[in-house]
Amino acid sequence: MVVDALFWLLALTAVASGFAVFRVSSMARATFALAVSFVAVGAVMLLLDLDYLGLITVLMMVMEMSIMAVFMIMYMMNPGGLMPMSMYHNKAGAMTVAVGSFVVLAAGALLVPWPEREGVAPADITLQLGEGIMGSKMLVMLTISPVLFATIVGSLVLAAPRGRYDRFGDDLDQPASDPVPGGLGR
C-alpha cells in the first residue's frame, strides 16, 4: 500500500519533471528538472530493492547534471531564461511522433503477455550484480572499459584547445606555460 502510493508519487514526479525539462525557460531549471526526474527513477529502483543501482543512478546523474549546468551556462544564450523566447523547431511534428510512439509502447506494455516471474531475488542483490559483472558478464565489462578509455581520450582531444606542444614548447621537459598554474608548480 505504502509502496504503491510511493510508486505513483515517484512516477508522476519523474514524468512531470521530465516534461518540464522542455517547458521551462531557464536552463538551470531545465537541467535540474532532469536531475529530479533521474532521482525519482533512482527512488523507483530503491522500491524494487535495487538499492545499489538506484543510488548509483542518483549519484551519477546528479553529478552529470551539475556539470551539464556549467555547459548550459557556457553555450546557451540567455541561460537564465530571463528573456521570453522559444528554441523549438517542428514542435507539432515532434509532439505527434512522441504521442504516437507512446501509444504504441504503452499498448505493447499493457497487451503483450509478459512471461511469469521465474526464480526469486537472492538475499544480497548487490552481490548478485557483483558476481554477474565479475563472472558471466565479464566480457561486457571488459568491452566497456576500452570504450570508457577511448571516451576520455577522444573527448579531451576534441575539447582541449591546446596540445602538449602548445603547453611546453618544443622541449617537453620544461615547465608548462599555463594561464593558471597548478598547485604543484610543475
Binding site: 548509483i56 542518483v58 546528479v62 553529478m63 542483490i125
Partner: peptide, 20 residues
C-alpha cells in the same frame, strides 16, 4: 545494505545544492 554508497550519493546531491 549499501550504506557506504548511500553516503556517497547524498554527498553528490551537494553538487547540485551548492550550485543552485
Amino acid at each position: 545494505a549499501v550504506g557506504v554508497v548511500w553516503f556517497n550519493a547524498m554527498d553528490v546531491l551537494l553538487w547540485a545544492a551548492v550550485w543552485i
